[in-house]
Amino acid sequence: MTDKAPAAPLNAGALPDPMPTRPPRSQWQDVWRQFRSHKGAMAGLALFVFIVLGVAIGPWIWSASPTDIPPVVDMIKNRDMRPIYTLLWDSGAKTSWAHPLGTDNLARDNLARLMFGGRVSIAVGLTAMALSILLGTLIGVMAGYVKKLDGPLMRLTDLFLALPLLPLILVASLMFREALAATFGPEGGVFILVVALIGITSWMQTARIVRGDVLALKEREFILAAQSIGTSPRNLILRHLLPNVVSPIMVSATLGIAIAIITESSLSFLGFGFPPDFPTWGRLLNDSVDRMTLYPERVIWPGMLISLTVLSVNYLGDGLRDALDPRIRGR
C-alpha cells in the first residue's frame, strides 16, 4: 500500500494501540493546537474577530445614528465633513471631532454608517457563503460518490449556471417578498431573500469542484481499503472523502464571502436588496464612486473593510485547511 489512508488507523480498530504515552486528546484539540501554530491564521482570526466585534458592539459605543438626518440648518452645516485626519495635510478642511470619519452628503455620520453597514454585509456574506458551501458540498459529494445521481445532479448544476440572475431575483422577490416580510418583518424578510438568492445562485462552482475531486479520490486505494473493511457509506464520506476535499472548499468559501458581499451591493444598487435607507458596505462604496476624487475616504473605508474581511477570512481558511488536514497536522 503506497498511499496510506490518513484516517484509517484511527478507524480500523483492528490493531489496538499498545500503551498510550500521553492522556488521549480529542481530534478537535489537535486541530486547535495545529491552528494556533499557524501565525497567519491567528492574525486572520484576530482581525476577523476585531471587525465582527467592531460592527456588532461598535454601534452600542458610538451612538450616532446611521440613518437619521439632522434638521435642515444642522444638515447644511454638517454635511460633507472630512475625516479628522484630513487636518494633517489640509488645515482648512471641514472637520469635527463629533464625526471622526466625516459625514456624507446628507450629514449622516460615516463611522456609524460603516459600522451599521458592516453588520449587514458580514451577516449576508457569512450566511450566504455558508449556504452556498453547504449546498455545493452536498451536491458535489452526492454527484461524485453516487453514480446514479451524477447525471441528474450535474444537469441541475448546468441549469442553475445557465439561469440569468437578475430575472431570477425579480421572480423570487415578486413571489416571496410579501410573505417573508409578513413573517419576519420587512428587513428580516429582505435579509432571508437576499441570502437565499445569493446562496442558491453561487453553489455551482463549488459543487463542480468537489465532484471532480471526489471522482478522483474515489479511485484511490485508501477508499478501496476503507470500503473493504466495511466502512458505511456515511462514514466513508464524512471521515475519508470530506477531509480530503476541504482545501478547495475553503478556497471557495473565502472567495464566496467576497462574492456575496459584492453581489449584495449590486442587488441593493439595482433596487432588489435592502431598503434604500439601510446602508451596507457595498452600497456605501457604490454610492460614493462618483465622488471619489472629492471625498476619497468614502470609497476607501468601505473598500478597505471589504478587502480586510475577505483577507482575514482567507488566512483563517488557510489555517483551518492546514489544521483539518491530518497529514499536515501530524507533522
Partner: peptide, 24 residues
C-alpha cells in the same frame, strides 16, 4: 504572502470601483 495579499485585495474590490479608479 505578497501574492495572497494582492490577489485577495484585487478580488474583493468590485469592478464598479476599480473601473472608474483606473480611468481616473
Amino acid at each position: 504572502q505578497a501574492g495572497t495579499f494582492v490577489t485577495m485585495v484585487g478580488y474583493s474590490v468590485p469592478p464598479f470601483f476599480t473601473g472608474p479608479l483606473v480611468i481616473m
